[in-house]
Amino acid sequence: MPDTATALTDQEKRDVLHFTQKQEHRRVVARAQAVKKLYRMGKIEVHALRGVDLTVFAGEFLAIMGPSGSGKSTFFNMIGGLDKPSSGKVFIDEVDIAQLDAFELAWLRCRKIGYIFQSFNLIPVMTCLENVMLPMTFAGVTHEEAFERACEILRTVGLGHRLTHKPPQMSGGQQQRIAVARALANRPAIVLADEPTANLDMKTGADIIDLLVRLTKHMGVTVISATHDMKMLSMCNRVVWIRDGTCDRIEERKNIKIQVGEMTSATEGAHSH
């Protein structure tokens, strides 16, 4: 199994590090303020989030880690404007998204944020190309331009030769790359990913992580990704640890390097050493 890190050049690695050091001075793109989420199912109440505060800076790669059921997906939905917090506020570009009307929210989802889901959520009857063109259609891009741009993005994610195939005919990794391409369709400022590698094997998962890292580096996109994937930890700028619906700790990647080493030594050692 090839190491994920080798997929990046040394220069890129240095850039990522450099970036990590600089990001304190960068602009805030998203901010969660005491976000709570309570699910009610009859008499049972589930406190999925118990007050999460988080500031996300432009251009960083933020990983959200935590055990299953800790509230990662819930937080993903909140910060992406896909669900409403029970209390607390979410700001995207310093705009409180609770204040937005349906039009503005649609605009935000369309242009500001690209979503990547664990289960891909592609539209199965549409071709690869049409899936990527759809958000552009919603953004009012002309058919011709959308076509050109979708082709280009699909080429950059390495699917230039599968444009007219439909998602069900493709592998998980390929489908997730379509999803990445679709998330990038309207050149979003933020890409939100919920366990993008969970349904993929190590190699394809690593490819997707590479793709996301490249986004932050070359396109200045902010990536927020929930994950269980230790490989992602080694590639991100910061890690947010969520436990039981609260933000346990936030760590710079350089600080967790040792921890990653510790954690991964058991699993990684088994097959790479």
């Binding site: 649609a106 989802r109 979503y115 959520n121 539209i123 919603f138």
Partner: peptide
């Protein structure tokens, strides 16, 4: 689910 996906991609409910 498809409707949900479309809304994530910026579709208005009306559309």
């Amino acid at each position: 689910r498809e409707i949900g996906t479309m809304k994530c991609l910026g579709a208005l409910s009306g559309f």
